[in-house]
Write a protein that binds this DNA or RNA. Structure first.
Lengths: 152, 152
DNA sequence: CTCCATTCCGACCTCGGCGCTAGGATTAGT
DNA sequence: ACTAATCCTAGCGCCGAGGTCGGAATGGAG
């Protein structure tokens, strides 16, 4: 598996926040049982999103979380980056200021052959993440079952 | 990190095999100290490549490993797949016969919003892996330092 | 002023996989 | 027979993932 469930939970959380179009903040427990996720764990997840300034929180009674920016302005690479910490295919890979570095540079007279591969892979992933906004996911999620209140 | 060092080691091993243009097979220990990798661990790694029919082995003295096919015919998604077991961004994601499935389908009346994201990410990665052949890496590795015998 | 809902914080636990080692069995050239 | 190599199985230490717990801080409502 590429990403952990932290990323899954975090993205679902963001989508859920994106769905709320009321003004006030949404408390975590609402999201927790809307998605069927353990509340105490969600707290840790949302903490990472807050640290990355993707959500804002209001404490106290009737508090909760809300998106810090409109969903259309949030690209998913920000979200995944905040949750996973880094998006590198390999340990030796750090994206230092626009230059992809690799600790195996010049191994024994050859260039680092794997660097080409990981660079391409990372490029493909990051492009996909940057091209997708949170609004895309919200809209995609509401596509089917747009208003089926009580199916039974 | 997306991939483990198993993938790194395996790819390097394949590249090293791709460099050998002599006829006979290359013993593992040669590769191990050409790349500075622990031999006993490499045995496990190469076992996976063999099970996937990417390398062939000859046992006994003067035995070793060789590519099962020319390097230009080996795409890196085969290699990474053999080493990593699967290339899915998320646990719930199985690539069942051309249809991307997700266990969260239809969660609570919404479509699975994250599915769109993971599908795109996986697409980007797999495309990058399929577009790169082992021969590309071999050639890339020999680019610089083409014949600098003793730099000092 | 006192509840209570809610965010926030840190410690803890369990489990599985990764990276690696160990020891031996098998195969085949010399 | 000796030896170089692949092969097989088991095991170990470590770390992060996924989750729980208990409690402190905050702020609206009675």
């Amino acid at each position: 598996m590429i990403f952990s469930t932290r990323a899954e939970y975090g993205v679902r959380l963001m989508v859920e926040l994106g769905r709320q179009h009321s003004d006030g903040p949404t408390p975590l427990n609402v999201i927790a049982d809307a998605e069927g996720l353990p509340l105490p764990y969600l707290e840790h997840v949302v903490a990472k999103l807050k640290k990355a300034s993707l959500v804002v929180s209001t404490r106290g009674a009737h508090g909760g979380y809300a998106l810090a920016r409109p969903a259309a302005d949030i690209t998913m690479d920000e979200v995944v980056l905040a949750l996973e910490g880094t998006i590198a295919p390999m340990e030796c890979f750090t994206d230092e200021v626009r230059r992809v570095l690799c600790s195996h540079e010049t191994d024994h007279g050859h260039g680092c052959a794997t660097k080409l591969l990981w660079t391409r892979v990372q490029g493909g992933m990051v492009r996909a993440l940057k091209e997708t906004t949170l609004a895309d996911l919200v809209e995609f999620g509401s596509r089917r079952a747009p208003a089926a209140p009580v199916p039974a």
